[in-house]
Design a binder for these strands. Sequence first.
DNA 1: TCACCTTTGAAGCGC
DNA 2: GCGCTTCAAAGGTGA
Length: 468
Amino acid sequence: MPQLNGGGGDDLGANDELISFKDEGEQEEKISDNSSAERDLADVKSSLVNESETNQNSSSDSEAERRPPPRSETFRDKSRESLEEAAKRQDGGLFKGPPYPGYPFIMIPDLTSPYLPNGSLSPTARTYLQMKWPLLDVQAGSLQSRQALKDARSPSPAHIVSNKVPVVQHPHHVHPLTPLITYSNEHFTPGNPPPHLPADVDPKTGIPRPPHPPDISPYYPLSPGTVGQIPHPLGWLVPQQGQPVYPITTGGFRHPYPTALTVNASMSSFLSSRFPPHMVPPHHSLHTTGIPHPAIVTPTVKQESSQSDVGSLHSSKHQDSKKEEEKKKPHIKKPLNAFMLYMKEMRAKVVAECTLKESAAINQILGRRWHALSREEQAKYYELARKERQLHMQLYPGWSARDNYVGGYGKKKKRKRDKQPGETNEHSECFLNPCLSLPPITGEKKSAFATYKVKAAASAHPLQMEAY
DNA sequence: TCACCTTTGAAGCGC
DNA sequence: GCGCTTCAAAGGTGA
């Protein structure tokens, strides 16, 4: 909420900047800032709510005269009301499930991760696994039971549980990292439903979902008949004749993102060193499962040939097939960066809390919250993004971001309207809501950050540059 | 139907 | 090396 008397908006903006460039020795301030992250969110939320209400009111009347000062009583009251209402919702009055429940992922930070020098699983992740993945042990147990059915050289279930890094994107627009990783207690509040619920209830619609067979990943739209016929997700990494080079337990079959789940950083190195490039399908949108790689989007192709009269279309078939061939060309998407991963995880929460759905507004909030994240939390996302890029590189060695540029795939996006430095966007929340305004990145800081990035690129993510 | 909006970060490219 | 541009996700909005 804009705090005119306290200069809250400016302060927030300043804090954002502090957070963005932590290498400039400003982390102390950030800690205190993080402690107020929730309060900040509440402020943003209430501001947005109030703002939307204000906008609605303004449309019917001469809003310029009536627009209340930000600290007017009505403003506070409404904000308080909205906050109280939100609090009621979170108190359990209206149960809200986690945005992405039941993902069959097991995300345990890489043991080589810098976050826990002792190599142990972070408490947060542990808590997350316990609460969100109560079936973990069960699954491991079931894996053990299934182990007998499988290649004796398969690794132990423990192997499965560890070092799983979901790195690629979900074909259904839900990034595996998103539901999987709860980086802070804030992300996983006690108000979240018990883990067994999400499997039965659609978190978005609240509509009960039919239970999934225990052996089927709920994220594969597979018919029961296909169960058991599914080759191993890493089948494309497996030598043709027989045994997988990399032993995989049946647990791997449960994961929608096989490579992501079974390949972590070290594993990626293993794969890259172990498998010749021809074993990595750079241009295949489908695994042997028939399930597209999440990072690949194959444009929907009309099934004209099978549905239309063959004779009448014979003449134009050639042209159609030509077009279809182009359409079929798989679109390998860019790996998500840290902020995108964060957005995917937090979007649902912000939407639920702010009762906003417009992505532009949501993204503004998320941008602010991103800046409000602690260094450690951001580092986790950077690390995940780094791993995602790593895996992406290994999956698609020849792929370049340039491939997705204009001319490579899809339609050309119209160039955004460039804003002049002092120009404000009337649509922008920043225009009306100082709480959402972010200070521009100065050239000095950009430069510093560029240097920062260059160094980081040589090793890890920017936040790890501290060590240098 | 599709571009736009809005965010941050990664990557490509030209100078 | 720097600055600019594009794309990644998301869903409402407007043309």
